[in-house]
Design a protein around this nucleic acid. Sequence first.
DNA 1: GCGGACTCTCTTTTT
DNA 2: GAGAGTCCGC
Length: 700
Amino acid sequence: MAELNSAQTRAAEAAGGPQLILAGAGTGKTRTIVHRIGHLIAACGVAPHRILAVTFTNKAAAELKARLSLLIGDDGGGVTSGTFHSISLKFLRRYADALGYTRSFQVVDADDQKALVKRMLKNRNIATDRLHPSYMLSWIEHCKHAGMTPEQAPDSEWNGIRLHELYAQYQQELSQHERMDFSDLILNAARLMREHADVAVALRAGFDHVLVDEYQDTNPIQHEWLQLLCGEHRNLTVVGDDDQSIYGWRGADVSHILDFELSWRGAGIHRLEENYRSTGAILQLANVIICENADRHEKALKATREDGEKPEWKVCNDEYDEARQILGRIERWRSRGYPWCEMAILYRSNRQSLPLEQLFRESGIPYRIIGGVGFFERMEVKDVLAYWALLNRCGDVLQLLRICNRPKRGLGAMGQEQLAAILAASGMRAYEWLDLIAGGQAEGAAKKLVPLARLLVDVRQDMEAQADRGLNMVLEASGYLQSLSAMGELEAASRIENIRTLQDYIEISMAQGLTPVEFMDRASLLQSSEEMKGNAQDEENAVSMMSLHRAKGLEFDCVVLPGVEEGLLPHQRALDEGESGISEERRLLYVGVTRAREQLLLTSARQRRFFGEMHFPLPSRFIKKLPAEILQQESFAPLTIHAQPAPGGIAPGLQVCHPTFGEGMVLGMEGSGDAMRVTVQFRKVGIKQLMLKYAALQVV
DNA sequence: GCGGACTCTCTTTTT
DNA sequence: GAGAGTCCGC
């Protein structure tokens, strides 16, 4: 305990019962959890496997175990750790039949989920402008986050469509295919305990102590999940920071952490406020930004480090200029001795990585992008997983339908429909059905799959013990790899590389003794190839680029936050939501700022392309009014217009004259054509937004 | 059933 | 500006 300060020690050594640890950014949160677990094992004699640690990502779970092993040796590895989703899946693999599911169900990913809803709405002739699939899906998700099954969902109508009926239909379609979506995992695990007393008893008996990290991002069903699991022994420790709650859109409810004492009477409360991470100047900026939020525990992080250099804000011309400026700054940091891997660029939306990627590639600076299109969402990865699952006799109908015409086997839309009907009528599992038709008895569309079915059976016989090697034969002999090369050399090469990566991962997992079903579980819960690598210590020596959401829990010496503009941070979608949306965006910026240890650069652009259209954003409200002592602003460089100025030669930065409002300066522009709006700071009447078409502005 | 050309839509964040 | 969806001729 020598390495802990007194507040951390009190939290780590607190007795059983509910404990709330309010841990600000950089206050040694993980260290405190690790020590608390170590204390439970070493001092209180709790068996490691009777401790459950719930983390936010799989990677965090792995890291926790690694640090625990460092602290207390091999025992640390015995602690059960995982995300709400992965732990729920483990519960369901044992008891899903209590809810009417087969235990061999699979998990659908976001793409398939969306496709399912789309198909459902199309079959019912509901046009997307009457009910948008994404609205339908978010309504369903909302119900699930709130813990409501279709029967418990409110009677809701939207344009005369009964949403709760569609929810019920959606669940039925999923269970027909023996599938659950991500939210089902948690809801159904909670239902196991909610509705089945015997299962609840069995699950509760598994753990004596439960610890939850990033508690500010739990949603109501996760809250219930915890209550059901820990309600008896009440040995629940939660750690979090209300100022870092950034998953409201996923149902997270900050009130769980704000009102913890109400749900868990007699809870011990511990505050960690000494920040060991960032320089004083960076913390000052963070504190100034976050104190504007109303709905929070009043507190301020205390710096333990020297003041350091002032954070800086740089206004750029457009996203390419922004990327250039960032590149320049990063090279400067490098020349001052910071390694590439200690630098990160954290953006609001993944799309912002594009210009950065281009410039970094040209300049040869090593970089890695974390997130974006998830590894397991790539077409070729999903295809190969489907082949692999069928080869290993666990693939389902959806997976067979996925690859039935890849490569082309002459099965178009009609053929696939026929196939789906044949499969449903057979009442067999997809792989069993394939075994059956391998003998040659097949009618209609099914005939076209006989060669594939034969191939799978043959390879299985040849390869018996090493199905991971057999996969390669299947991909070769089926013509799948060949079909990829038709896509052009470059694209095929990157897809084949992804397939190799996946094959390596399959091999590793098999070597660890996982069954095919266990492997599919693992794959469906991971989303990046980053996580597949596990916690390999050799973090590549490259500049990291990722979304602000992904950056939660990480830290770097040098951080760049690009796109600090109205419409991007705060995001337009959040602006439409009003105050609560804006608070969350402010927390997002706070998370970004507090990732930095020593150097921090914020940038914004005067003009930025959004899906092919030029926009002229204003600087973010979060930093616009900050004094130079807190955020040093580089003086405005003369504006270079890369795009066509608007009709009449209007562009941001120019002096203009209006017939009634008088003289002023153009601050920003948005929209295009007749809908283009201009924001002007008038000398006498202040800021006005005008429709360019009608405003009769003249450049002075 | 397939491929090419065309149109339309959609852009937040993730387990 | 990309990706998905649609239409049409073969």
